[in-house]
Write a protein that binds this DNA or RNA. Structure first.
Length: 579
RNA sequence: GUCCCGGUAGCUCAGCAGGAUAGAGCAACGGUUUCCUAAACCGUAGGUCACAGGUUCGAAUCCUGUCCGGGACGCCA
């Protein structure tokens, strides 16, 4: 239990006591009561709004209630002072001893520090990337990939079991286009001059090796078959080749998935889609009808006709959604329904979808599917990532989409490195547009947050290495009461804040909070370090004072383990030294 | 026309399950330093939280409306 939760519990106990003593009439609803760090540190270490939040319910004046609470809290051995401020805040300052104990606890917990107890009630499915298997990953996929991976790591760290899933869109018309494109490369590999790649096919060179592999496997046997014969064969091999490439791209970013789920596997007579539609039909959620055309400008090819529709509007969507195309085959959405059902039947009770902002229109229909099929038993959360704008030295970096001229994810990682890509993608709220400047991201200065945070970690490691030379290994028992400098105590408090940051980041599904916290922690470390320049008696390693050195190294070690944990959640390396 | 996201310091952005005098980095300004433990440090200034209503003890945060920017809107996946 972290410091703030700890004191929330103590506060609750105090209210129980006050009720027993008759000071307050009853034990009120505490859901609006918070114990949190005050915005202004001069107000103390903790603040609670309890008196203001509960005054009305208890029929008391906030200040009177605050008096009663502050008196009890002030008697707590860990509380140095309890005061009342403003309209009824109770501000607490905790004893230095209490904070030093938190430091000792952090060191005892080691890499588990900040990790809440595992939850047995959660089983989360995080679906992310799910790029179409028609080519290499490009930068547009990057943010969602990194975000999804970091979110999965964050939830895992928070004790929620996570399965990482990739949905392969291997059933639509575009994988047929892929197959035809590859077939051309196959004929090319057989020695034919295929000339320009026709409009509408994928022109990229990356398909050449796939054509060559087909020759190696089939010789010229496919060449004279009708398309009906060769297409499924070529398609299967092409998709497999694309997925191999995509996995390699992802691996380069440090991303892996537990499950690769094939959309195609849902199709077929009596298959998962049929079953899902049948289930919806049984619940009366499917009908045949007409949709009103969208207001505003009418699509040119709009044709008013009857469709098989899912009653998404019964579950909060704006419009009912079609399940069948005009040729009678299922829509992409129909497969989505079956896919959700698969996840639900596999036991997940939270489905997280990480998507680009251009998929914002999908949120309501996915939520509707979730409600319809799980009866509210599964939570659907959609995390949208806004787009990334590329810059080079401040100049917008245009990429031409035609002729396969796009910036691949591989290009970006090759140029700036995995750590820089990942950290920068996470150093922004995911629903804000992100500017990514190649020059700034590799800059080796404190202006670059990646460098700044990694530098802080490297600094802890070099300090610990040097300390071992000077004083040998850290002993098991350390006298932390020697830590009394304001900068040291501030660092301790920052370290002690870590578990709460993890809790909030996980609850809000916002890994960027981890990145911002790490930047602050690094800043506190650097700034304390710099104080040692002017005041040598504040340096971590004190040649003539091993006991003080040990205490300070304990603090350095705690900072290091939190930095390492945090960077681990972001999937960014914690280097022992900067090169 | 409808829906989603954003609008906070000159710039880039945090903060938003309601809390006190709204924060950080950069830029600006002023000073210190050229040392060293790892790529200088300290300080100052800078705000109608887009706008208007509402909810309440209290709103950047929640609700309604408006404006601006971005995205999306049956049979593509």
């Amino acid at each position: 239990m972290h410091v703030f939760a700890d004191f929330a519990a103590r506060l609750r106990a105090i209210l129980v006591t006050l009720a027993a003593e008759g000071v307050i009439g009853h034990l009120p609803d505490l859901s609006r009561v918070v114990v949190e760090p005050p915005r202004d540190p001069s107000h103390g270490d903790l603040a609670t709004n309890a008196a203001m939040a509960l005054a009305k319910d208890l029929g008391m004046k906030p200040r009177d209630l605050a008096e009663a609470i502050a008196a009890k809290l002030g008697a707590d051995a860990d509380v140095a002072s309890a005061s009342i401020a403003g309209p009824g805040f109770v501000n607490l300052s905790l004893t230095e001893t209490f904070w030093r104990d938190q430091l000792a606890k952090a060191l005892r917990d080691g890499e588990d520090f900040g990790r809440p107890p595992p939850r047995s009630d959660a089983w989360v499915n995080v679906e992310y990337v799910s790029a179409n298997p028609t080519g290499p990953m490009h930068v547009g996929h990057c943010r969602g990939a990194v975000f999804g991976d970091a979110l999965a790591r964050l939830l895992e760290f928070s004790g929620e079991p996570v399965t990482r899933e990739y949905y392969i869109n291997d059933a639509g018309a575009q994988v047929d286009v892929l197959a035809r494109s590859v077939f051309l490369r196959y004929r090319e590999a057989l020695g034919e001059d295929v000339g320009e790649i026709p409009e509408g096919l994928y022109p990229g060179d990356y398909l050449k090796p796939v054509g060559e592999a087909l020759v190696a496997a089939h010789g010229s046997a496919l060449r004279n078959q009708p398309e009906k014969e060769w297409l499924p064969v070529v398609r299967t091999e092409a998709i497999a080749a694309m997925m191999t490439m995509i996995r390699a791209d992802l691996a380069q970013l440090g991303i892996r998935h537990d499950v690769f789920f094939s959309e195609r596997s849902l199709h077929g007579e009596g298959g998962a889609i049929d079953q899902a539609v049948e289930e919806l039909t049984k619940h009366g959620l499917i009908y045949v009808g007409r949709l009103a055309p969208p207001k505003g400008q009418l699509p040119e090819d709009w044709e008013d006709r009857e469709q098989t529709l899912f009653r998404a509007t019964s579950f909060g969507d704006d419009v009912d959604r079609p399940l069948k195309k005009s040729d009678g085959s299922y829509t992409y959405f129909a497969a989505d329904v079956a896919y959700f059902r698969s996840k639900f039947e596999r036991g997940f009770n939270e489905m997280v979808f990480v998507m680009g902002a251009d998929h914002g229109g999908y949120v309501k229909r996915l939520e509707a599917v979730g409600k319809a099929l799980s009866g509210g038993a599964a939570r659907v959360s959609v995390e949208l990532c806004q787009l990334v704008r590329l810059f080079r030295n401040g100049e917008p970096f245009k990429m031409s989409k035609r002729a396969g001229e796009f910036v691949t994810l591989r290009d970006v990682v090759d140029e700036v490195g995995r750590d820089a890509v990942r950290f920068m993608m996470l150093f922004r709220s995911n629903d804000a547009v992100l500017d990514f400047d190649f020059a700034k991201v590799v800059d080796q200065s404190r202006d670059n947050p990646v460098f700044y945070v990694q530098m802080a970690y490297a600094r802890t490691q070099s300090t610990l290495r040097k300390a071992v030379e000077a004083h040998g290994e850290l002993p098991d028992s350390i006298n932390f009461s020697l830590l009394s400098d304001a900068g040291e105590l501030a660092l301790i408090k920052k370290v002690a804040a870590w578990p709460r940051i993890v809790e909030q980041a996980a609850a809000s599904r916002q890994p960027h909070r981890i990145a911002f916290y790490l930047h602050e922690l690094a800043s506190d470390l650097h700034s304390h370090w710099n104080r040692g320049k002017d005041s040598p008696d504040l340096r971590f390693i004190m040649e003539n004072n091993p006991l003080l050195t040990h205490a300070r190294l304990g603090l350095v070690k705690a900072v290091a383990l939190v930095l390492a944990s945090g960077l681990g959640i972001l999937g960014v390396s914690a280097p022992d030294e900067m090169r």
